[in-house]
Simulated assay, not measured.
Amino acid sequence: MKKFFTGMLFALGLMVAGEVNAQTKIGYISSQEVVSIMPEARKADSLLTDFKNALIQNATDKQNAFYAAIDKFNKDSATLSDAVKVVKRTELTKMGQELGGEEERIQQQLQQKQQELIQPINRKAYEAIQAVAKEHNYAFVFEKEALLVAPPAEDILPLVAKKLNIKLPTAAGGNQPAAKPTTPKQ
């Protein structure tokens, strides 16, 4: 009797697990693709390009001022006293050192600006993915690029795009989401 009862509990457990498994919806999405189709991302790219161009122009202006100061020093050096020459050389050396670190400063400023611009876009995409998962009863949503092997799932990109009121690019653009794999019914 004890074996029968244990067997019945085991069978009941398998049936419940099978029911839970059959009802578990799994989806996947490329969050990079979601962000790339968002209009905010194109605007951020444009703003970042403008910012980069402004930084480069500023660096170019500093470089031109440095070269002009060197030329002026070279022209005026015959009439300058030794003490003034030492001061001017020190100033030129300092300008040259500052100019040498300009590329690193530009990269740091660009990275900071990029983070500032992309963070709200990533947050909006994440919230849309969360909302779609909840609305459509997805128990799991995986990052498409992160998994090598996964159980059958659905690409939820079209649902997220609809949630964000974004029209997906056509197949001619090459960004058409992959066809949904069929999920075997149990």
Rank of each mutant, 00 (worst) to 15 (best):
M1C: 06
K2E: 07
K3R: 11
F4I: 14
F5C: 03
F5Y: 10
F5D: 00
F5E: 04
G7A: 13
G7W: 08
A11W: 09
A11V: 12
A11L: 15
L12S: 14
L14F: 15
L14Y: 13
A17W: 10
A17G: 10
A17N: 03
G18R: 07
G18F: 12
N21A: 06
N21G: 14
T24W: 07
I26T: 07
G27K: 01
G27F: 04
G27Q: 03
I29S: 01
Q32R: 09
E33N: 09
V35Q: 05
S36V: 03
E40W: 02
A44P: 09
A44Q: 02
A44K: 02
D45H: 08
D45Q: 13
L47A: 05
T49R: 15
F51T: 08
N58C: 01
A59V: 05
A59L: 03
T60M: 10
K62M: 13
A68K: 11
D71P: 01
F73M: 05
N74I: 09
K75G: 03
S77Y: 00
L80D: 09
S81W: 10
S81V: 08
D82N: 13
D82V: 06
V84R: 11
V84L: 05
V86N: 11
V87P: 00
V87C: 03
V87G: 02
K88V: 14
T90D: 13
T90L: 03
T90H: 06
T93A: 13
K94Q: 15
M95W: 06
M95K: 06
M95P: 00
E98K: 08
G101C: 08
E103C: 00
Q107N: 15
Q111C: 00
Q114W: 07
Q115V: 01
Q115I: 01
Q115Y: 11
L117Q: 00
I118L: 14
I118S: 05
Q119D: 07
Q119Y: 01
I121A: 04
Y126H: 06
Y126V: 08
E127D: 12
E127C: 06
A128E: 01
Q130V: 09
Q130A: 14
V132M: 03
V132A: 01
A133G: 15
K134R: 12
E135R: 12
E135C: 00
H136P: 07
Y138R: 14
A139Q: 07
F140V: 15
F140L: 15
F140Q: 04
F140A: 10
V141A: 01
E143S: 10
E145F: 11
L147V: 05
L147M: 14
L148I: 14
P151S: 11
P152Q: 13
P152R: 12
A153I: 00
A153Y: 00
E154A: 09
D155N: 15
I156P: 02
L157M: 10
V160S: 05
K163D: 03
A171Y: 10
A171V: 15
A172V: 06
G173W: 11
G174M: 13
G174Y: 07
A178T: 12
A179W: 11
K180Y: 00
P181W: 05
P181Y: 06
P181L: 02
T182H: 12
T182D: 14
T183P: 09
T183A: 09
K185F: 10
Q186E: 08
